[in-house]
């Protein structure tokens, strides 16, 4: 598997950058998709990009603890203002997309498994 930077994913999938731009140079080690926080804690791996419909600030704590490379919120949802504030403090990149979770994950899989 080739090393993929978060910045490459953002540009090729046309993701909207919400915050945490200073860390888009990091390498994405794969991905994880889940809206259950315990499941993410148990199974996501360091450096994964995380796709979730959750928009509340606790996703930032999960991302920090798991050393997630970035969070994608699909389906045109927006992170809560408090989530953005926390993510800025912790330098966690959050991106949004109008695409559905299914579509964005399919494209991510294509990029990350080349």
């Amino acid at each position: 598997m080739r090393e993929t930077k978060l910045s490459e994913i953002i540009s090729s999938l046309n993701l909207k950058m919400i915050c945490g731009e200073e860390n888009i140079g990091c390498v994405v080690s794969g991905g994880y998709v889940s809206d259950l926080l315990s499941d993410v804690m148990a199974n996501a791996k360091k450096g994964n990009i995380w796709v979730t419909l959750q928009t509340h600030p606790n996703i930032v704590a999960v991302a920090v603890l798991k050393e997630i490379s970035g969070v994608i919120i699909p389906g045109g949802r927006k992170p809560e203002p408090e989530t953005i504030k926390k993510a800025e403090q912790e330098k966690i990149p959050i991106m949004t997309t109008e695409l559905s979770g299914f579509e964005i994950v399919g494209r991510l899989y294509g990029i990350l498994n080349k």
Binding site: P57, N58, A61, E82, K86
Partner: peptide, 9 residues
């Protein structure tokens, strides 16, 4: 819930 996870971090 906003600060939940802080101690663990």
């Amino acid at each position: 819930f906003v600060n939940g996870g802080r101690a663990s971090c």
